[in-house]
Structure formats: C-alpha cells, structure tokens
C-alpha cells in the first residue's frame, strides 16, 4: 500500500491540513513514508514544495498552467495520470476535498471514505475508521476495503499535527507525466464575501444563536443581551439559511472566523463546521436544552436551559450589574 497526501495551499502558503494528513498516514501505516502531492504553477508551487519537503520525505510536484487554480476536475485528471494503481490518497475534507474525492475514487476504481475523524485499526486490506453522522450527534465505525486503493477524506483538525524532526525530502517533478489538461467546468473568479454592517470579528463578546432560536422574531432576545453586554450577535449556518440573519454574521468554515474573549453559543449543537470558525481559545459558554448536545464537550461552561427563557433573565442580570435601565438597552 503506497500512501499519498494531497497538499492544499493558497498564495504560496501551505494549509494546516498538510501536517495533519501526515499524522493520519502514519496512523494508517506506521512504517509508511507517505508521499506529498502538490499541484500548482509558478513560483508559488516551488515555495510550497520547498516548505512541504521539510516534513514529507518525498514530494511529487505537478506543475501546469491549467492547475494555477485548483479546479477539481483538472486536478483529478492529473492525479489519475500519476497515481499508481492501489494507492491510498489522503485529502482534507473541506470544500476542495468534497469536490475532488468522490469522483476521483470512481476514476481510480478505488474505495472512498468521507470525513474521517480517526483510524481505528488496519487488518490486512480492511481499514476501520471513525466517522460521525447526523451533524455529530452520533459516531460510527466504518470498514473500508482498500485492496484496490482508496481515497480517504480526513476531517480538518481531527488529527494532531506531529512535531517530527524536520526532514529534507526529495522533490520529484511529475509535471511531464500529466500533459495537457482540459475540463468541462472552468473556473472564472472568486467573489469575496461582503463584510456586512456589523463586523463580528471585531467584538470581545459574541452572543451566537443557532437553530434553537426557532424563529426570526426571537433574534431580538439575543440582540438585547448583546446590547446590554456591548457584544454582537453572531449565528450558525441554519440561521443564515433561513434568512433570519445576514451571511456576514455566520461563524464557521463557510462563514467568518472569530477570535472573541467570550463566545456564548445559544441553541447551537456544536457541528465541526461551526466550531472551525471559533479561534483564539475564548471562554465558550454553551446554553442548550439538550444535556447531550455535542457543544457541551467543547464548551468550558455549560447551561442546560431553554434559551428563550434563560437569555432574557441573563439580560436583566447584566443590566443590573452594569446599571443599565431596561429602556436604554432595548431592542435596536
């Protein structure tokens, strides 16, 4: 079994997942020396390869002007050309991995396992992995037959980056193997998200509401608390999907990354895509009516309560503590 890791990078900077995939590869096969695959073009590609060789023993560099932007269809064609049959390829499970891997596994005629959190044992060609379903409410063991190879998508952050001694891996230029590439899907441009009226990345305290807020009319309850505390209201994705709040208020992998001092998660279950947006190790206070909600395993402080009842009480207390009258701290 030869193990490969597809390296994500942007503007010449290697993504954190590159070292995490190395850890996952070692867990899959402690004796393996996984090979990093880097696709791209120009000086960025070279600097990324130079960086990646400090922790991977071997780096396959695939340079092509067509790969300057990582279009999954083009990357797939390139990988199909270079990967030996039976290879196991590790890919980070984020927007690019979701785009690339299922189709790649079809073209390689290998197995695909998605969003892997842990590797729980290897017996011959059977790999047992840990996944989650239902937004992290429950875990599963999944058995995958890797006898004809596999593409394994690994959840970002699930494997700790190893602090191995630096190596000086060799860079193998595979560009010639790839040749001309064309696709039926063409990248045009990236539209950068608008920052919105309230910039949630600038606040020390965030009152963050999830689906548990139940309806748009209730968002005001969180806003009142935020006003009393001098905080801002942020939210999870379903709140944006339902158009109750602006996209610019969303915390998470497909929303904003925030670094507050205090993050109060109200009616938020704790899905990894949401948690991915909370950085800087804030005090996380979770309020949820379900004592088994996964958020209680990441929060520092937990409160089992109905947010519609608890938040107004907290608001009153905060106003008392800060000497604010109810009117002054009223709804905006």
């Amino acid at each position: 079994m030869r193990t490969f890791a597809y390296i994500l990078h942007k503007a010449g900077v290697v993504d954190d997942s590159a070292t995490e995939l190395l850890t996952a590869a070692k867990k899959l096969d402690p004796g393996a020396s996984p090979i990093a695959i880097v696709t791209g073009w120009g000086p960025d590609l070279d600097s990324v390869c130079d960086r990646v060789r400090t922790f991977y023993g071997e780096v396959w560099k695939i340079g092509s002007e067509a790969l300057a932007y990582p279009n999954a269809e083009l990357v797939r064609s390139a990988l199909v050309k270079v990967l030996p049959t039976g290879s196991v390829l590790l890919v980070a499970h984020e927007h690019f991995g979701i785009d690339l891997s299922p189709g790649l596994s079809v073209k390689l005629n290998s197995a695909f396992v998605s969003d892997v959190l842990d590797i729980d044992g290897v017996e011959g060609t059977q790999v047992k992995v840990v996944r989650q379903e239902f937004g992290g409410q429950i875990s599963t063991h999944v058995r995958c037959d890797v006898s004809s190879g596999a593409v394994i998508n690994v959840r970002p952050g699930a494997f700790k980056a190893a602090n191995g001694a630096p190596v000086l891996g060799q860079i193998v230029d595979m560009s010639d193997e790839v040749g001309a590439l064309s696709a039926k899907r063409r990248y045009i441009e990236t539209l950068v998200a608008e920052s919105g009226g309230v910039d949630i990345t600038k606040y020390d305290v965030l009152i963050s509401v999830g689906r548990g807020i139940q309806e748009q009319g209730n968002v005001g309850i969180a806003q009142e608390l935020a006003d009393a505390m001098g905080a801002a209201v942020s939210c999870s994705r379903p709140v944006v999907d339902a158009k109750w709040m602006e996209k610019s208020r969303q915390v998470g992998s497909s929303g904003k990354t925030v670094k507050p001092k205090v993050y109060m998660a109200c009616g938020i279950s704790g899905a990894f895509q949401h948690l991915a947006g909370i950085k800087g190790n804030p005090l996380i206070i979770a309020v949820n009516k379900n004592p088994k909600a996964p958020i209680f395993q990441v929060a520092d402080v937990g409160i089992v309560a109905d947010i519609l009842e608890f938040l107004p009480e907290l608001t009153n207390k905060v106003r008392e503590a800060r000497g604010i009258s109810a009117k002054a701290g009223g709804r905006q």
Binding site: Y187, T190, L191, S253, S254
Partner: peptide, 9 residues
Amino acid sequence: IEGGNKEVN
C-alpha cells in the same frame, strides 16, 4: 468556499 467566499465556474 471558505469564509463565505464564492467560486464562480
């Protein structure tokens, strides 16, 4: 894609 950005294809 990440950060609420959109990739146009």
